[in-house]
Simulated scan of single mutants.
Amino acid sequence: MTDANAPTDDTLRRWLLQQLTDADAQALDARLMHDDALAERLREAETDLIDDAARGALGADDAEAFRRYRLVDPQTRERLVAARAFARLREEEGGQEVVRRPHRRRLAWLAAAAIAAAAIVLPMRWTSPPATLPTYVLLAQTARGAEAALTLPAPQTAVRLQVEVADATRRYALAIETNGRRTPLARDLVPREADGYAYVEARVEAALLGQGRRRVVLIAASGEVERDWTVVVGAAGE
């Protein structure tokens, strides 16, 4: 039986963006405490909101509220990075949705769980086209100092690295170090910005990554190392 008093999807989104009145927000808070079905709907509404933010589909007011109230949560920021990667792959496939909407929601949650568990976005592979590259996202909070190295499968051809940067006005280079020897991966990278985040992106050939324990280094134009990540390519990553 349908609950005629159940909040609409729009109401749930407005709650997420703190656009409800205090009275309406408090009433919804109380209901969420004991309504598991509603809590699940809220999680789905949040996934859709993050997906819209990743695609640049939010209006100006909603985008500002999203930045102000949702991006303060590190997990939301990580999910946004994953959603951007999915959105980019969809764009490369001509803007076609390659999965049905409920399945896309499950994929977004799996991507978020993968980030939380392994501190890196797992390869985001679609069934077509074959030329789509697996994408790996390196976030600032998973830089050197994390408890464990990041792991990724040995690529067959190439991968796309997306790396969060601190300053969108600077240019960057990426390099990989093995046993103290540094090999350039990409130079003169111009940061992109979306929803308050800045990142650089580069296609990296499999031969440059190699296999084994590596150190991915983000280098500012001045030559200083801004941050680095320890990764294990292949073996433990497969």
Rank of each mutant, 00 (worst) to 15 (best):
L12N: 04
D36Y: 08
D36W: 06
Q141P: 00
A111G: 00
R13N: 11
D24F: 09
T178S: 13
P7G: 09
R79C: 06
G56R: 10
P7T: 07
E97F: 15
D188R: 13
E40Y: 07
A221G: 02
N5L: 15
A235F: 05
H34L: 09
A45R: 03
R104D: 07
D35K: 06
R105A: 03
R67K: 14
L110T: 08
G56W: 06
A194Y: 05
R68H: 01
E147T: 12
R43Q: 14
L122R: 01
A198Q: 01
Q26M: 12
A154K: 10
E147Q: 14
A65C: 07
P191D: 03
T142K: 01
P7F: 06
R192W: 02
A220H: 06
R192L: 10
A119Y: 02
P184D: 06
A83D: 11
A207H: 13
L107F: 07
N5M: 15
I115L: 15
L89T: 07
A25I: 03
R170Q: 15
G59E: 02
A118K: 09
D73I: 01
D35H: 06
D29I: 07
T11H: 13
A175V: 02
T76F: 03
R68E: 05
A221D: 13
T11W: 00
E93F: 08
W15T: 09
S222A: 13
R77W: 02
A45P: 00
A60Q: 09
A85Q: 05
Q96F: 08
E91G: 08
P130V: 13
L138C: 00
A154G: 11
P184N: 05
T76N: 10
A206I: 12
E97A: 15
T2L: 15
D167K: 09
A149T: 09
R214Q: 15
V231S: 02
A45C: 01
R187Q: 14
W126H: 13
A85M: 07
T47Q: 03
I219M: 14
Q141Y: 00
A114M: 05
A54C: 02
D48V: 07
E226I: 05
P155I: 00
A23Y: 05
A202N: 01
V98R: 07
A220Y: 00
E64L: 12
D10N: 14
R55S: 10
D51S: 14
E46T: 07
T127V: 07
A143S: 11
D35W: 03
L208F: 04
A143I: 01
L49Q: 04
R181I: 14
T169I: 03
A220P: 03
P184Q: 08
D73M: 02
G95E: 08
G223N: 05
D36C: 08
P153Y: 03
R160W: 10
R105Q: 09
G180Y: 04
A54Y: 01
L208K: 13
H103M: 09
A83V: 04
E226S: 07
Q18N: 10
R125C: 04
V81M: 12
R67D: 11
A85H: 05
R215T: 12
A114L: 07
E97H: 15
D61N: 08
L28S: 04
Q26F: 00
